Amino acid sequence: MNPPQPHDLPHLLTLEGLPRATLDALLIRAQSFADGHYDRRALDAVAVCTLFFEPSTRTRMSFSLAAQRLGADVLNFDASTSSTRKGETALDTFKNLEAMGVRGFVVRHSQDGAVAALAGHANPGTVLVNAGDGRSAHPTQGLLDMLTLRQAKGADFSRLTVLIVGDVKHSRVARSDLHALRALGAGTVRVCGPAALLPGEDVLRGCEVSHDLDAALEGVDAVMMLRLQRERMEEGLVGSLEDYHRGYGLTAARLRRAAPDAVVMHPGPINRGVEITDEVADGPQSLILRQVANGVAVRMAVLEALLKG
């Protein structure tokens, strides 16, 4: 299958509303890249900038590696050492880099909708990829999670029961995973977490919602854990790390409630001993490092679809 063409996908800002055919095509192309089949000159002489206004390890490095493997020229922007420290706006930074001939921008920002706002000012031929904005979306994380799940469980998601656990309310990863799972026809999607960390019905549409992790784990095929953002403790949404782990931490004993061949996922960074124990994170059912590896392949597929041609 040919990858989606740029005119079909002018930017990648969110997975919400994208047709299943587009997601399937990206996932199939990403699997080809994961298998080592790609053209190292596909983006020859194309300039790609990782424009990050928030810290990142996995996302930024994998986008850089993805662009390099396709032959692009890669610029890494660091807000802490840039003119943003002097008061330059994100838009001015973006337009100046665009004026230098940068065609592809991978943008992370703390504000909801910031990447879409920049896309609204982009010149024809300039493309943007949302690498995480506020709590809104993290589309390539959603895609790499779906690729990992597809590798483990097959392409037919209608047979699966998937559980998302933790701070869904503040998680852009959870939103993109939910968008993707709906588009790909997941059979049952469960969401579990403290009431203070769960969003409204608009986000949880079609999900089975629970505050009891032991009950929610029964028979699931995949458990997608989320990072507990520790600032939630300061806001009074979580009593203590110990209390959170007691109620919502994934342990080996708890995992036995899931299906025998259930897989465990986590977007990272992991708070070990809080949302997941070492035994589970490093155990045979964990796909956490495979998610990291798949991040490169998925981001290659996205950059190729947006920038080739």
Rank of each mutant, 00 (worst) to 15 (best):
N130M: 13
N130G: 15
G132S: 14
G132D: 14
G132T: 12
G134C: 10
G134R: 08
G134I: 09
R135Q: 12
R135H: 13
R135E: 05
S136V: 01
H138M: 06
H138R: 06
H138E: 15
P139N: 14
P139I: 02
T140L: 06
T140F: 07
T140A: 01
T140P: 05
Q141V: 02
Q141C: 00
L144A: 10
M146P: 08
M146Q: 08
M146F: 03
L147P: 01
T148E: 03
L149I: 06
L149V: 06
L149K: 04
R150Q: 12
Q151G: 12
A152L: 10
K153V: 09
G154L: 10
G154H: 11
A155V: 13
F157Y: 13
S158H: 10
R159N: 15
R159G: 15
L160D: 07
L160P: 09
V162A: 04
V162R: 07
L163S: 15
L163Y: 02
L163H: 09
I164G: 11
D167Q: 09
D167S: 10
D167M: 09
V168D: 12
H170Y: 01
H170I: 00
H170F: 06
H170G: 00
S171V: 10
R172I: 03
V173M: 01
V173C: 10
V173I: 07
A174C: 06
R175I: 06
R175V: 00
R175S: 02
R175Q: 05
R175A: 07
D177Q: 15
D177Y: 07
L178D: 13
H179P: 12
H179G: 15
A180F: 01
A180V: 05
L181Q: 12
L181I: 15
A183V: 02
G185D: 10
G185S: 02
G185Q: 03
G185K: 00
A186P: 02
G187E: 06
G187L: 04
T188Q: 08
V189I: 07
V189M: 05
V189A: 06
V189L: 11
R190T: 05
R190I: 12
V191K: 11
V191F: 03
C192M: 12
C192E: 08
G193C: 00
A195S: 15
A195H: 08
A196D: 15
L198Q: 10
D202W: 00
D202S: 05
D202C: 01
R205P: 03
R205L: 08
R205K: 14
G206P: 09
G206K: 03
G206N: 14
G206T: 07
G206R: 01
C207M: 09
C207T: 13
C207K: 01
E208C: 08
V209Y: 00
H211A: 05
D212P: 05
L213N: 04
L213F: 03
D214W: 02
D214C: 00
D214E: 14
L217E: 11
L217W: 14
L217Q: 07
G219W: 00
G219T: 10
G219A: 13
A222E: 08
L226W: 01
L226D: 13
L226F: 00
L226G: 10
L226S: 13
R227N: 11
Q229C: 11
R230V: 13
R230L: 13
E231H: 12
R232L: 01
R232I: 02
M233H: 05
E234M: 01
E235F: 04
E235I: 05
L237Y: 03
L237C: 10
